[in-house]
């Protein structure tokens, strides 16, 4: 049983490795696309830890991506850039520069602490109430960050982040996120949380402290999403508050739901499918030549095609592509 479970992890890792390998060997454009997709995967796996296991939808996790990204940038920005753009930072942050791994550790720690604080409140609420609270939380964090000029430059962007997210960093992070998500899902706490997802009352009756396990999942998931945000910041080189708002939330949640929230294989498939379709449609919509025939550029095709693809998958498979199945070896799924 244990080995079959781990075969899921092995298969998914292999899939990620293969994708990263192709990205590494591919053109610059393809490589950018793969890095971006792996970064999104870290976020989606992070969401899966909480949303997938608990069944409670969070629209607020983008806040942790933002908090992680900004707090890591306080330390990874070159000192010279910090003196120009964030002169009011506390002296100890202003005078140090650390690499991405240390910066990421700081960012993840910070976001997790904040996640713990707000998580305590959110797990008091049930179902949609909790979801709305996360929406409200995201609005609060966005507003505060957009006006905390001394720490974030507010609505102005923070530039100069070292471009440290390469294919290597993205790959390692995606594998790490998968490992953690997998470990949690198959752990006692993960199973307790899944029990509460299927029947909260029954789960409580068997002595599961639903609030406690939800809280820990919330914090763990905040940490992983923060890691994704940190990677995104160091991939683009620029941080804006708006990059961690509804579009981010909607896209990553859609990836999770399309793959199937109950399955980690689903999280991976959903991310690859949505990101892959988006990139394919981007290329096609730019216009191309086929057998001497010019296909003109079709603006809007990518967005409309993507929305239609999502709708069709949702209508055909309301529980996501994978439902609650996982890939296992041998091929039997279950």
């Amino acid at each position: 049983m244990m080995t079959r479970r781990w075969s899921t992890f092995a298969l998914l890792s292999l899939a990620i490795l293969v994708v990263a390998g192709i990205g590494w060997a591919g053109s610059d454009i393809f490589q950018r696309f793969v890095i971006d997709m792996l970064v999104k995967l870290v976020v989606v796996l992070g969401l899966a830890v909480f949303v997938g296991n608990s069944g409670v939808f969070s629209f607020g996790h983008a806040s942790f991506a933002a908090l992680g990204a900004y707090s890591s940038a306080w330390f990874t920005l070159p000192v010279a850039a910090k003196k120009i753009f964030l002169p009011q930072l506390p002296a100890f942050a202003l005078s140090t520069q650390v690499g991405l791994p240390t910066g990421a550790a700081i960012g993840v720690a910070f976001a997790s602490l904040v996640g713990l604080a707000i998580g305590v409140i959110i797990v008091q609420l049930s179902g949609l109430g909790a979801s709305i609270a996360t929406v409200a939380w995201l609005a609060i964090v966005t507003t505060v960050l957009a006006n905390a000029d001394a720490y974030t430059r507010g609505t102005s962007s923070l530039v100069g982040l070292p471009l440290a997210t390469g294919i290597g960093a993205a790959l390692v992070s995606a594998l790490l996120a998968l490992f953690i998500a997998f470990l949690f899902k198959t752990s006692r706490y993960g199973l307790m949380l899944q029990a509460s997802r299927e029947d909260e009352v029954a789960a409580k009756a068997t002595g599961i402290s639903v609030r406690a396990v939800r809280l820990w999942a919330f914090v763990l998931s905040a940490a992983l999403v923060a890691l994704g945000g940190i990677l995104q910041g160091h991939f683009r080189g620029v941080l804006t508050v708006s990059q961690f708002y509804f579009e981010f939330t909607y896209l990553t949640l859609a990836m999770l739901v399309i793959g199937g929230i109950r399955s980690l294989s689903g999280a991976v498939i959903g991310t690859f499918l949505v990101a892959g379709c988006a990139e394919m449609l981007r290329i096609v919509s730019g216009g191309f030549e086929i057998a001497g025939l010019m296909v003109p550029a079709l603006p809007g095709l990518r967005e409309i095609g993507l929305a239609l693809m999502m709708l069709i998958v949702l209508l055909a498979r309301p529980r996501g592509i994978m439902g609650s199945r996982e890939f296992t070896w041998p091929v039997k799924t279950g």
Partner: peptide, 30 residues
Amino acid sequence: VDVGAIAATDVIGKGARMIMVTCDFDFGAP
């Protein structure tokens, strides 16, 4: 924003000596 960076990579790969980017800092910077 991310496609912006890909688009830049794309036209530079096609040999562009200079590129013009979006008239907005947040969208043009990457």
